[in-house]
Design a protein around this nucleic acid. Structure first.
Lengths: 340, 340
DNA sequence: ATTCGCTACTGTACCGGTCAAGAACGATCC
DNA sequence: GGATCGTTCTTGACCGGTACAGTAGCGAAT
């Protein structure tokens, strides 16, 4: 059986191909009864609907938005914060009638998703700003929104007030009386840090520098999960160990707490720990984690709103969502025996 | 500035459009020096590469595989097992040079991703077998692989030995001496159960029926997270409460353990609990969870292999991955005061 | 000298739709 | 009663590529 196209249906019914197209795509352009007849004939021939690829070419849009992430996608799924972001983005896109296409970074494979996959717009999420994939996207002139990235000129951006949040975290410790503070983050070299990590580092320093506190910084990669534990251990297993620690993420904070416990330190009596993100882990952990809250679903929704705007020709203003301090039970004044 | 196409480059260089196409897509079809000249001209004109939408139409493939999930995507991301599956699928696809497009269920919106988005094949994951979206996919004759679904005739399938795993779980309790067993699962009506839930129910019954044990079944929806806790509470807060419980998932098992603790019951001394899936939660929980292990990354890889095979015209045999019992510390003989 | 076989390029016909402008025709208006 | 209008359908061009069957040129084999 030959492939069924608009033309075959048109021939069958005895109308022009365009009329059949309208029957599917613009029902108001023809009489209801003819439309019925056409749909019936289409059904009879086993026609499902206009071919998406052909339609994409003719219309100039595909109905799908890309999401560029570098690093393996599984990291993004396993991290609670980025998974929540993906969830929010995909739900919001689907509410607006669009699908989400994940664009893996190309590495050095010949297939470059950022260049070779048809999408109407792209959200750039966790991504090295110098990556080749990003370069392709820019040359393609695809509508683009960066999320958790430095907002460059002319590129719409959705961010969280990472620096402000980090200030709140540091202030909280300083206000409690901590004068010896550790930092558990991704990298020591500021040049290597991704945008949120850099901003958070700046925020901690804003406050600690002003308070005359010189933090001890340890760095750890995301993977493997034990790396953060080891880094925290190296921070805490020394005579001049800090009384308080600010962390890049809740996951790092939990690793720090575990490291502390393994050294026989009690949290928060002997050590205060502040996380970041207020992920699901934070409230559920024992002790519940003092952390900086960011509204990840709102970030996803804002990102979709921004890309929709850009795709419609708009130039949305940069969005910066607020962060707030959530005090739970992992922080206390230094050496506070009354706590718990 | 007019849009740059193969034709504009061809005119510029003075060759045919086809040769320019070959310069990008089949380098072996022309001399290296001409190719250089063409690429240089393309670069100069700001040409990024063949338009993906046009290429998709002409070649008949898009470079993207769809994943059909019904329910909101955020549920899929928040559940540890499905998130791990998505992660494995996306990584494996990207290794094979394909992108992953998430096809949200259409609800009753006019936009039906399963019908209107161009993909080369589709993985059907968590999905009501009677859903309209699935119907569209079938009529489209898109290459398709079902995962965690009943394998119907002619449709490639990747599954886990859910029934066998459930048998192992029930056997474990029976072998420990339990004669009063509870079940915490998704639904009581077998007709309503999704495939893995039905299979697991069958597996539990296989063993319990043979042992003359009549289980007490309670049902709970996935959402909200407290529902499972409440269901477990209703199971345990009664005079004839079971001494052992098998659960549909690790998440349900953890909820059951929390419910038991809130009633002052000790696990496993007063109550044995068996999970399912061996997700990241299982080993990390306190007490560590006895559970049925399934290899989720392997499932993802097998699913991608199967869809690649089907897309290539093959008819892969159904895959059923094994499940194994992992005994940790949430199970013990009934009323065993020596444990822990 | 003819034939063969390569390599390197070209010509033409699609892929399956949508867009924008136009034509046929009965209804409406003044 | 002719101009205007809206509805309904048609026409032709175009979206930006790829497949496939040539063809020209040229050195090697017969």
């Amino acid at each position: 059986m030959a492939k069924v196209t608009l033309q075959s249906i048109a021939d069958r019914v005895g109308v022009s191909r365009m009329t059949v197209s309208n029957a599917f795509s613009r029902p108001d352009q023809l009489s209801a009864e003819l439309r019925e007849k056409i749909l019936a004939a289409a059904d009879e021939l086993g026609y499902v609907g206009p071919d998406p690829a052909a339609r994409a070419l003719a219309r100039g849009r595909t109905g799908s938005v890309g999401l560029l992430i570098n690093g393996t996608l599984s990291e993004a799924f396993e991290d609670a914060v980025s998974a929540a972001f993906l969830a929010a983005v995909s739900d919001e896109l689907s509410a607006r009638g669009m699908a989400l296409t994940l664009l893996p970074s190309s590495g050095n494979r010949p297939f470059v998703a950022a260049r070779d996959v048809a999408v109407d717009g792209v959200l750039v999420y966790i991504c090295d700003p110098t990556s080749a994939d990003l370069g392709w996207l820019e040359r393609r002139h695809v509508p683009m929104v960066v999320v958790d990235h430095h907002a460059r000129d002319g590129v719409a951006a959705v961010n969280v007030d990472d620096r402000g949040g980090a200030r709140l975290a540091a202030e909280h410790l300083v206000d409690l009386g901590h004068r010896s503070v550790g930092v558990v983050t991704l990298e020591t070299d500021p040049e290597q840090l991704n945008y949120p990590a850099r901003e958070r580092m700046l925020g901690w320093h804003d406050v600690l520098d002003a308070a005359g506190v010189e933090p001890t910084v340890v760095a750890t990669p995301y993977q493997p999960p034990t790396a953060a534990y080891d880094a925290a251990l190296s921070l805490l297993d020394r005579p001049d160990r800090p009384t308080g620690v600010v962390c890049f993420s809740d996951a790092f904070a939990l690793a720090t707490i575990r490291a502390a416990e393994s050294l026989g330190l009690r949290v928060p009596t002997d050590l205060s720990v502040v996380g970041f993100d207020d992920s699901v882990l934070a409230a559920a952990s024992r002790p519940p984690l003092t952390t900086i809250h960011q509204d990840v679903p709102a970030k996803g929704i804002a990102a979709v709103a921004a890309i929709a705007d850009v795709m419609g020709g708009g130039h949305p203003e940069p969005v910066v969502l607020p962060t707030t301090l959530v005090v739970r039970e992992s922080t206390a004044p230094p050496g506070d025996a009354t706590s718990r």
